[in-house]
Deep mutational scan, measured.
Amino acid sequence: HEITLHINGRRVKLRFRDEKAAEILKEAAKKGLDEEELKKLAEELWR
């Protein structure tokens, strides 16, 4: 699955395995994680 989040006016595509991962990524984006941090988090969730 993929999700596209808008971060600092940019579109960031993240891959994720399940809905739980999608929710975690959305929450992290709301908390203000930047693009690099979100990509790292997405990679961690993928494993």
Results as ranks from 00 to 15, higher is better:
residue 30 K to H: 10
residue 33 L to M: 15
residue 10 R to H: 12
residue 29 A to W: 14
residue 5 L to K: 00
residue 42 A to K: 01
residue 20 K to L: 09
residue 46 W to F: 06
residue 10 R to Q: 12
residue 15 R to Q: 08
residue 40 K to N: 12
residue 17 R to D: 02
residue 21 A to H: 15
residue 38 L to Q: 01
residue 33 L to T: 08
residue 16 F to M: 05
residue 10 R to I: 12
residue 40 K to Y: 10
residue 27 E to M: 10
residue 12 V to G: 00
residue 46 W to V: 03
residue 39 K to F: 11
residue 19 E to A: 14
residue 36 E to S: 11
residue 19 E to V: 10
residue 31 K to W: 10
residue 38 L to R: 00
residue 20 K to R: 13
residue 17 R to Q: 07
residue 20 K to N: 10
residue 34 D to T: 14
residue 45 L to A: 02
residue 5 L to E: 00
residue 21 A to R: 02
residue 32 G to Y: 04
residue 13 K to L: 08
residue 21 A to F: 05
residue 18 D to Q: 05
residue 16 F to L: 07
residue 9 G to N: 05
residue 13 K to Y: 06
residue 43 E to H: 07
residue 36 E to Q: 14
residue 27 E to F: 05
residue 46 W to S: 02
residue 32 G to Q: 05
residue 34 D to H: 11
residue 11 R to C: 15
residue 3 I to T: 02
residue 16 F to S: 07
residue 36 E to F: 13
residue 9 G to L: 02
residue 13 K to R: 12
residue 33 L to I: 10
residue 3 I to E: 02
residue 14 L to A: 01
residue 27 E to K: 09
residue 29 A to G: 06
residue 22 A to M: 13
residue 19 E to R: 11
residue 42 A to M: 05
residue 20 K to T: 09
residue 18 D to M: 03
residue 3 I to C: 03
residue 17 R to P: 05
residue 10 R to P: 00
residue 46 W to Y: 06
residue 43 E to F: 08
residue 39 K to W: 09
residue 13 K to M: 08
residue 42 A to E: 04
residue 18 D to T: 14
residue 4 T to I: 15
residue 29 A to E: 04
residue 1 H to T: 09
residue 6 H to L: 15
residue 45 L to T: 02
residue 25 L to I: 11
residue 39 K to E: 06
residue 13 K to F: 06
residue 41 L to N: 00
residue 26 K to H: 07
residue 16 F to D: 00
residue 33 L to D: 05
residue 46 W to H: 02
residue 19 E to M: 11
residue 42 A to P: 00
residue 35 E to L: 12
residue 28 A to Y: 08
residue 17 R to Y: 10
residue 15 R to C: 05
residue 9 G to I: 01
residue 14 L to E: 00
residue 28 A to L: 05
residue 39 K to V: 13
residue 31 K to Y: 10
residue 45 L to P: 01
residue 36 E to W: 12
residue 2 E to H: 14
residue 11 R to L: 15
residue 34 D to E: 12
residue 14 L to N: 00
residue 21 A to W: 03
residue 24 I to R: 07
residue 24 I to S: 06
residue 14 L to Q: 00
residue 37 E to V: 08
residue 27 E to T: 09
residue 14 L to M: 04
residue 22 A to F: 10
residue 13 K to H: 10
residue 44 E to C: 05
residue 20 K to V: 08
residue 30 K to L: 12
residue 36 E to P: 10
residue 15 R to I: 06
residue 42 A to F: 03
residue 5 L to T: 01
residue 11 R to D: 15
residue 21 A to P: 01
residue 18 D to S: 12
residue 22 A to K: 14
residue 17 R to W: 13
residue 12 V to E: 01
residue 22 A to G: 13
residue 23 E to N: 13
residue 25 L to Q: 00
residue 15 R to D: 01
residue 26 K to Y: 11
residue 29 A to Q: 07
residue 24 I to G: 03
residue 2 E to L: 12
residue 10 R to S: 09
residue 26 K to D: 04
residue 34 D to K: 10
residue 45 L to I: 04
residue 30 K to E: 12
residue 14 L to C: 04
residue 32 G to L: 06
residue 31 K to P: 01
residue 11 R to V: 15
residue 5 L to F: 10
residue 39 K to I: 14
residue 30 K to S: 14
residue 10 R to L: 09
residue 26 K to L: 13
residue 21 A to V: 05
residue 27 E to A: 13
residue 38 L to D: 00
residue 23 E to P: 03
residue 1 H to Y: 14
residue 12 V to Y: 04
residue 20 K to M: 11
residue 12 V to A: 01
residue 39 K to A: 07
residue 36 E to L: 11
residue 19 E to W: 13
residue 35 E to R: 06
residue 46 W to K: 01
residue 28 A to H: 07
residue 45 L to C: 02
residue 37 E to Q: 15
residue 1 H to V: 09
residue 10 R to M: 09
residue 45 L to F: 03
residue 25 L to Y: 03
residue 6 H to P: 03
residue 36 E to R: 12
residue 15 R to E: 03
residue 41 L to C: 06
residue 39 K to R: 14
residue 21 A to N: 06
residue 38 L to G: 00
residue 10 R to D: 04
residue 40 K to M: 12
residue 27 E to W: 08
residue 25 L to S: 00
residue 40 K to D: 10
residue 25 L to A: 03
residue 41 L to T: 02
residue 43 E to P: 00
residue 10 R to Y: 07
residue 31 K to L: 11
residue 5 L to H: 01
residue 17 R to F: 09
residue 18 D to F: 06
residue 37 E to D: 13
residue 15 R to S: 04
residue 25 L to P: 00
residue 20 K to I: 10
residue 44 E to I: 12
residue 8 N to H: 06
residue 46 W to G: 02
residue 43 E to T: 07
residue 7 I to E: 01
residue 34 D to N: 14
residue 24 I to E: 07
residue 29 A to I: 13
residue 41 L to K: 03
residue 38 L to P: 00
residue 38 L to W: 02
residue 40 K to P: 01
residue 20 K to F: 09
residue 1 H to S: 10
residue 21 A to C: 04
residue 18 D to K: 02
residue 37 E to T: 07
residue 12 V to S: 01
residue 4 T to M: 08
residue 38 L to N: 00
residue 26 K to F: 10
residue 36 E to A: 12
residue 5 L to I: 12
residue 25 L to T: 01
residue 17 R to N: 07
residue 17 R to S: 06
residue 6 H to N: 13
residue 11 R to N: 14
residue 7 I to N: 02
residue 36 E to K: 13
residue 38 L to H: 00
